[in-house]
Design a protein around this nucleic acid. Structure first.
Length: 366
DNA sequence: AATGCGGGGCT
DNA sequence: AGCCCAGCATT
């Protein structure tokens, strides 16, 4: 394979580069609830490492931390999670996004209990066979929870390595070169600490937009810093524009049966298990349509227009009109709705889009 | 190799 | 308004 475009003319970073970072990490490691501090002498709980890695897939530490603490308080170990009600787990995950992660998490817990005696395998290839654990997470769990000498490469580590070696090939083509460079950089011990050290450096100093190179312990060894390229790496192919979709969410309220539990109820559905917001509860409504321009609200009066919610997904922008409607407006052919107590809507586990639509609807009804 | 899949916080 | 993030599964 040809070497990547690189300005790594000076001697390649050596093992001392890694040692500099480990020394920095021993002082500056972030304290996180799924971690043991460096030098603790034992590895953190694999259950917590696994859960944190899954939550952290495409999700930031600040968003994950409170949700992680809530989750482990509710299900403190693997057996508790494997025995959990699946709808409860999905509702607990609501708002975190990428809901296939939660379904894989449940499947993985059951697999571990049923086929592995409730014990995590400790090698990278075994871990990578489990649901929701891919190449990165398998390597990360093996290194952090079991001390295996693996090389997890996430977006943070990729960024730091691309800069250290001034790899100018655009992503995703640069991944092979980054893996080769990372293997050269990696120390022969403390693989887990080294991975987490790279992540902490990436979060604190080697940031995507405006890296702060002055405090970096590896600055002297960084080819990008020498060439003033740090802020421009890694390079990325330009992304296509985001198309627009439009939808209608129905707000259908009925009076519950009289009695102690009586009260207003709102119609919810459970979305299909696969696909967008899969397996999550939602407001009913017809399928969303791709549009070139938004329809004016008066065109969609199947009921009283309560307001509009705009929501950005990864690959399209949605405008959702929330409409108060009669029970007869529910899409024919759908399964019967779940009649959820209106005063407990916050406990329904709605993903953010529908939580915002419901909040808007309740405000508009007052 | 490319695509689908959330959401919030940053600039 | 765009870019970013402790990626994975599917095709």
């Amino acid at each position: 394979m040809a070497m990547p475009a690189s300005r790594n003319i000076a001697p390649a970073p050596t093992r001392t580069t890694a040692q500099k970072l480990l020394d920095w990490y021993d002082i500056h490691a972030r304290q996180l609830p799924w971690r043991h501090p460096p030098g603790a002498g034992c590895h953190p709980d694999p259950y917590r490492v696994w859960l944190s890695e899954v939550m952290l897939q495409q999700t930031g530490v600040s968003a994950v931390t409170p949700r992680f603490l809530r989750f482990v308080e509710r299900w403190p170990d693997l057996s508790a999670l494997a025995a959990a009600n699946e709808a409860d787990v999905m509702a607990e995950w609501a708002g975190l996004g990428y809901y296939a992660r939660a379904r894989s998490l449940i499947a993985c817990a059951k697999t571990l209990v049923d086929q592995y005696g409730g014990i995590f395998p400790r090698t990278e290839p075994e871990l990578a066979r489990l649901p929701g654990i891919g190449p990165y997470s398998a390597a990360a769990i093996a290194a952090i929870a079991f001390g295996e000498q693996t090389i997890p490469i996430d977006a943070n580590i990729l960024r730091v390595v691309a800069r250290l070696f001034a790899i100018e090939t655009p992503l995703p083509a640069a991944k092979g070169a980054v893996a080769t460079a990372a293997a050269r950089l990696w120390p022969s011990m403390r693989a887990g600490d080294f991975a987490q050290a790279l992540m902490d450096l990436a979060a604190r100093h080697c940031t995507p937009r405006a890296p702060d190179c002055a405090p970096c312990p590896m600055r002297a060894d960084c080819a990008a810093a020498r060439h003033g390229l740090a802020a421009t790496l890694p390079r990325k192919a330009t992304k296509p524009p985001r198309p627009m979709r439009h939808g209608v969410a129905l707000w259908v309220v009925r009076q519950g049966k009289s009695g102690a539990a009586g009260g207003a109820q709102v119609a919810l559905i459970t979305r299909p298990a696969r696909g967008l917001l899969g397996g999550m509860r939602a407001l009913p409504g017809p399928p969303w349509q791709v549009v070139a321009a938004l329809p004016a609200p008066p065109e969609l009066l199947q009921g009283r227009h309560l307001g509009r919610v705009r929501h950005i997904f990864t690959h399209f922008a949605l405008t959702l009109d929330v409409v108060a409607a009669d029970e007869s407006a529910l899409p024919a052919g759908d399964a019967p709705p779940i009649w959820w107590p209106l005063d407990q809507i916050d406990a329904a586990g709605l993903p953010t889009l529908f939580a915002r639509a419901a909040a808007l609807a309740r405000a508009a009804m007052d």
